[in-house]
Design a protein around this nucleic acid. Structure first.
Length: 217
DNA sequence: AACCAGGACGTGA
DNA sequence: TCACGTCATGGT
C-alpha cells in the first residue's frame, strides 16, 4: 500500500536526520529546527517568496548569494523590489541563473504581493503569476503562509519512485493527492502544517545524501 | 568536461 | 495531455 509507505517514511526520516527547520531565513542565520514560529514578519514572508522563485532548478547556495545581494540593496520588500532598476536586479540575482526570466518573475510577484498586502493568496492566484508553477506555489503557501499543501519536487518524485510509490511519470497533482490522502487522516490543524513542512525538508535532505539515486530504506 | 541543482514556459504533436 | 527545447550560473 503506497499510503503506508508515505505514512511510515516520515518518522523514519525524522529519526534519521532530526528536524530540518525549513524554510531557511537570513533573519535566523538560515535554518531553525524545532522552531515553527517563522516567518515572523511580512519581510520574512516575502523573502520566502523571492527564494522560491530564485531556487528554481538552482542550488540553494546560489540563492543565498542572491538574497544577500538583495538584502544589501534593501530590495526584500515588494515596494523596494518594484523600484529596483532591472539591470541592478539582474546583477544581484545573477548567481541563480535564468536572471532575465527570474528578474521579470520577481517584479510580477512583487506587484502581486504589494496589492495583496497581508492577505493570504489563493493557490489559483499564485498559479496565474508568470514564473509560479505548482511547486513554487505550494512552497509559498506551505512555508510562507502555513497552508496545508504538500510540496512535490524532483527529489520527492525520485525517492518515492525508488520506494515503489510512484512510476515516476505521474502528474504533479496525482502525486500530491497521494501524500494528502495518506497524511490528512493522521494529522490535523497546525500539526499537519508542521508535518508537511518537515517531511518535505527531510525528503530533500535524504535525496541529497544519496544523490546517485540508490537510497533504499 | 559533462552533469546537475529545492522548475516554468512555449511549442507542436 | 505529453514530450521536448529553452532559459544560465556555479559547483563537482
Amino acid at each position: 500500500m503506497p499510503h503506508n509507505v508515505i505514512i511510515q517514511t516520515y518518522p523514519q526520516l525524522l529519526e534519521l536526520y532530526g528536524p530540518r527547520g525549513w524554510w531557511p531565513l537570513s533573519a535566523c542565520n538560515g535554518y531553525h529546527p524545532n522552531d515553527y514560529s517563522f516567518p515572523k514578519t511580512a519581510s520574512q514572508r516575502f523573502e520566502i517568496c523571492v527564494g522560491a522563485i530564485l531556487t528554481q532548478n538552482t542550488a540553494w547556495t546560489s540563492v543565498e548569494t542572491a538574497l544577500d545581494n538583495l538584502s544589501q540593496l534593501h530590495a526584500l520588500t515588494p515596494a523596494a523590489l518594484l523600484a529596483c532598476d532591472d539591470q541592478v536586479l539582474k546583477t544581484a540575482i545573477r548567481s541563480t541563473g535564468y536572471y532575465n526570466q527570474k528578474s521579470a518573475y520577481l517584479k510580477t510577484m512583487a506587484a502581486f504581493f504589494h496589492d495583496c498586502k497581508a492577505r493570504t493568496p489563493t493557490r489559483e492566484e499564485l498559479l496565474q503569476l508568470r514564473g509560479v508553477g505548482e511547486e513554487t506555489a505550494d512552497s509559498i503557501l506551505l512555508y510562507a503562509y502555513q497552508q496545508p499543501f504538500f510540496v512535490i519536487d524532483a527529489y520527492t518524485r525520485r525517492v518515492f519512485t525508488h520506494l515503489g510509490v510512484n512510476e515516476g511519470k505521474e502528474s504533479y497533482r496525482v502525486v500530491q493527492k497521494r501524500f494528502h490522502d495518506a497524511l490528512e487522516p493522521l494529522y490535523q490543524g497546525q500539526e499537519r502544517i508542521l508535518v508537511y513542512q518537515e517531511y518535505h525538508a527531510l525528503i530533500v535532505e535524504h535525496a541529497k545524501r544519496n544523490h546517485s539515486g540508490k537510497q533504499k530504506q
